[in-house]
């Protein structure tokens, strides 16, 4: 391993851990009010929606169909693995049809 590669990877690790610890640390000074806590409750769904939407668009029609199937299976079964499998299989099968 060259020292440049080592420095790069350690640098990546330091900034990445800083982002992980940073949110927790910053909230020490904010001392969250009831309003802040309600606001924080909106973060998880919003982050997931922001990650999902472009990924679905990137997969085109198969992605759009698959996300609907995944949502429906998840709603009915509440089973993570089953929902994941249905999404992957749908992307694959619809992908065969569309191509």
């Amino acid at each position: 391993m060259t020292s440049e590669a080592f420095v790069t990877i350690v640098g990546m690790a330091i900034v990445t851990y800083s982002t992980r610890a940073g949110g927790m640390w910053l909230m020490r000074f904010a001392s969250p009010s009831a309003r802040t806590e309600r606001w924080l409750q909106h973060i998880p769904g919003s982050v997931l929606a922001a990650i999902i939407a472009p990924a679905v668009i990137a997969h085109g029609i198969p992605g759009a169909v698959a996300v609907l199937v995944t949502g429906a299976v998840s709603l009915r079964t509440r089973n993570l693995l089953l929902a994941m499998a249905s999404g992957v299989i749908t992307v694959y099968l619809v992908g065969l049809l569309v191509k």
């Binding site: 769904g45 990924a55 992605g63 998840s74 993570l80 929902a83 994941m84 999404g87 992957v88």
Partner: peptide, 20 residues
Amino acid sequence: RWGLDFAITAIFTALLIGMW
């Protein structure tokens, strides 16, 4: 090619549904 890159998106979708 096997749709496996969609796995994480599918899991996020299921997690999002659970947060409703």
